[in-house]
């Protein structure tokens, strides 16, 4: 089974970040980390390939050069190939643009299954997976907590609100967006990390996928007007003091609010 895992290197603001003009911060100003839900997607994909005994996992990222670190981390954990799509016109790309690029890539690669993370830790839009499934007209399950092969189908657990779980059967090809994995995602060993450093990594521009800037602008779901700082409304009464005082004070509040 060949699986495509789209991954995102999520950009986070450093603690001392100050917003200046309402525009997106430059990539150099951000701290980049592989999206944690995508790590779970990779874990799910690697598990499915291992249990089916054959196939490969292709990881793909739409992102600036900083995304290469995340792709290499995926290679170290067992992904077979990695590729990155980017040009600077994509700096403001939203989920629908990313989905358009990934759809073109999937048409080229023809995977049996696409496994995404349910959302990204920076934008939390949770939109790319469904948009991608829609464009490719694939059966899809969102908020997956586990998947296994049953003959030609997949049995997939979908995590509902309030702790309920729905088990679904879907045929392949299909798309899953992963919320959690039953176990902890694997860690790469040092040798694999070293090998991944020099592994080949394919780089594409949108034109390689027959997508031009005008078309991508047209598919964007929204336009950024401006970014702003959130109004902070801290009403918390803060206690300064050593743990012994903090603990005494917590115990006192609980005694008042919830007399035993």
């Amino acid at each position: 089974m060949n699986i495509l895992v789209p991954v995102k290197q999520a950009g986070h603001l450093p603690d001392d970040f100050v917003l200046e003009d309402g525009a997106r911060p430059a990539p150099e100003a951000l701290e980049w980390r592989l999206n944690e839900w995508d790590e779970r997607a990779l874990e799910t994909a690697l598990g499915l390939v291992e249990s089916s005994g054959a196939g490969e996992v292709l990881v793909a990222s739409v992102g600036p050069v900083q995304a290469e670190a995340g792709l290499r981390a995926c290679l170290a954990k067992g992904a077979t190939r990695a590729l990155r799509v980017w040009d600077d016109s994509l700096a403001d790309a939203d989920a629908l643009i990313v989905a358009e690029l990934l759809a073109a890539l999937a048409r080229r690669e023809q995977p049996d299954l696409i496994v995404c993370g349910v959302q990204a830790s920076d934008t939390a839009a949770a939109a790319t997976p469904a948009a991608l499934a829609g464009l490719l007209d694939l059966p899809r399950v969102a908020a997956v907590g586990g998947a296994r092969r049953e003959h030609d189908d997949l049995l997939v657990e979908r995590e509902l609100e309030g702790g309920a779980v729905e088990v679904l059967r879907i045929g392949l090809p299909a798309l899953l967006s992963v919320q959690s994995t039953p176990g902890r995602p694997r860690q790469a060993n040092l040798r694999a990390i070293k090998q991944a450093r020099s592994a080949p990594l394919e780089t594409l521009v949108p034109g390689d996928l027959d997508l031009d800037e005008a078309r991508l602008r047209e598919v964007a779901g929204a336009r950024l007007v401006r970014l702003s700082e959130r109004a902070r409304v801290s009403g918390a009464h803060m206690l300064d003091g050593p743990p012994v005082e903090v603990a005494a004070w917590i115990a006192a509040i609980i005694a008042v609010e919830s007399p035993a």
């Binding site: 929204a222 950024l224 007007v225 959130r230």
Partner: peptide
């Protein structure tokens, strides 16, 4: 956006 650190205003 950015892990809820910032607020993004969008139009369509």
């Amino acid at each position: 956006d950015y892990g809820e650190r910032l607020l993004a205003e969008l139009d369509f």
